[in-house]
Every structure is written in C-alpha cells, then in structure tokens.
Design a protein around this nucleic acid. Structure first.
Length: 258
DNA sequence: AATAAGCCCAACCGCAGTCCG
DNA sequence: TCGGACTGCGGTTGGGCTTAT
C-alpha cells in the first residue's frame, strides 16, 4: 500500500480543515485504484472529462481522463459533489417537509425521494434522514415530527378528495366521448392515466385513492413515470381548472421528472 | 478544560437490474 | 439465451466537528 502525498479537496480544506497528512491512511492505492478523499486535481480531471464526454461510461474515465479511480468512485463523486446543479447549504425546513412526506410514501427509496428535491442527492437526503429522523420512537422530536406528518397527511387526504373530484370530471369527459373512445387534445399518457383512474376507482369503490392498495401503487408508478405527480400541473395541462390551496401538500411539492 | 456523545457527510461496499455482444 | 460488464441504489463506515456535561 502506497501512501500518497496530495492536496485536499476544497470541501475538506474549508469545512474540515483536514490536511492530507491528517488523513492518515486515507488516500491510498489498493491494487490499481485509488481510494479515499478526492483531490482538487482529480476533481478537475473528472469535471473536464464529463464536460467533454458527458455523464456515463464511468469505467472509461480512468483511461480517458487519467484518473486512477474506478468507475463507481467517479460516478459517485460526480453525482454527489461535482454536478453543477447541486444545491449547497443546509436542508431548508421546506425541503425537510418534502423529505418527510416523500419518505412516508416511498420509504427508503432515496433516489426516488431525491427526484422530488432538485439539487439534492440521494446520499444527502439519506444522511439527513438518518441523522434527524431515524431515532427511537420514544424520542420527543420524533413524536413531534410524527404529529406534524400525521397532520400533513390529513391535509393531503383532503386535498386528494379535491383532486379526485377534478379527475372524476375528466372521467366524465371520457364517458361523454365514449363513442369516439378518445378525448380530443389530450395526450395518450393523460388519457391512459384517467382511464386507469376510472378502473382503479371502480375497483376500490371510492376507497383510499393514493396510498391504500397495490392498485394505487401501480397508479403512483405511472404518475411518476409521466411526471404527473404534481396534479396542479396535471389539471393545468388538462385545462380542467386548477384548484388553489395555500397549504403545501404532496401534489404541489414533488416536481415532475422532466 | 477535558471528554463523551451526537451530528454530519464523503466515500466505500455489496447487491440487483440493465445492457450488450 | 446467456454471461460478463456496466450502472444505480441502499446500507454502512469512519473520521472530523460541535455540543453537552
């Protein structure tokens, strides 16, 4: 094992005031790949590589960029630290709220949750969650969070009732256009979604629309896939009248993926 | 002032899914 | 169809920093 002499990354320099020497056994070469904290020079090479070749083909980075890092390490460094669209700084209360809400739905699917928080990485969210919320259920702050979440979920359910009414109106449109089997000016996806809602609603006989069953989970997948999670947008796109609610809720918080 | 406990976060690991020859 | 390479994800680790005692 070879101990390397090197500079620290900016982050380490300014945040942790840690020198390469202080890193001790970090920054070593095992076999052919370097491990441990990234140096400023490595960052520069990686940024250069991505600017030239784009993201992906991470295993080519070592060869093409002259980095002694494996593909996984390069991808992780880019995704979690070097990407230009990353937000810096603390998680805001608003973002925390989104994390809580999305985690209530998706559980530990951090990458899915991260898609609802532009500029934040799955790693960041995961770390934040583990630090702030993964505590024993007896923890006082946890109880407070749980209470807050419960209240939010109640508000969301009220909101969803409104959403259902909007979509039911859409379904009525379908029924009115039954002969044509198509609603004019609606994309295939949106028609499919409304059709799916119709079937799901029938199956569930009006019971819990979003979270209750496997059927609704299938529906959720389609919502995410088509970027229709935000029903405000959905309604706006359909021109069937957007509702207005000053309370932030699930539908208005999560952003579509496109 | 010393130190223990908790916080924070970069980075690693293993696994599973996808791609491609 | 199959198997290896690649990619992405979630879990975990480890070490510096901050706060509480």
């Amino acid at each position: 094992m070879l101990l390397l002499s090197r500079q620290c990354t900016d982050r380490y320099t300014c945040r942790s005031k840690m020198t390469a020497e202080q890193m001790g056994n970090w920054g070593v070469i095992e076999e052919e790949w370097r491990k441990g904290p990234w140096t400023a020079e490595e960052d520069r090479l990686l940024i250069e590589y991505v600017n030239l070749h784009g993201e992906g083909r991470w295993n080519s980075v070592a060869r093409l960029a002259g980095l002694k890092r494996n593909g996984k390490s390069c991808r992780l460094r880019w995704v979690n630290y070097l990407r230009p669209d990353l937000k810096r700084g603390q998680i805001t209360p608003y973002e925390e709220k989104i994390i809580l809400e999305l985690h209530a739905i998706w559980g530990n699917r951090w990458s899915t949750i991260a898609r609802g928080l532009p500029g934040r990485t799955d790693n960041e969210i995961k770390n934040y969650w583990r630090t702030h919320f993964k505590k024993s259920s007896t923890d006082k702050s946890q109880k407070t969070k749980a209470r807050l979440l419960k209240r939010q979920l109640f508000q969301q359910q009220q909101q969803q009732l409104n959403n259902q009414n909007d979509i039911k109106r859409l379904v009525l449109l379908f029924e009115e256009n039954e002969n044509n089997n198509e609603v004019p000016n609606l994309s295939q996806e949106k028609q499919e979604m409304a059709f799916l809602y119709q079937n799901t609603a029938e199956q569930e006989q009006g019971g819990g629309f979003f979270y209750s069953t496997e059927a609704s989970s299938k529906y959720e997948d389609i919502m995410w896939d088509y970027g229709l999670w935000n029903l405000d947008d959905f309604n706006a796109n359909l021109n069937i009248g957007a509702y207005n609610n000053s309370l932030p809720c699930m539908q208005t918080l999560a952003t579509p993926f496109h």
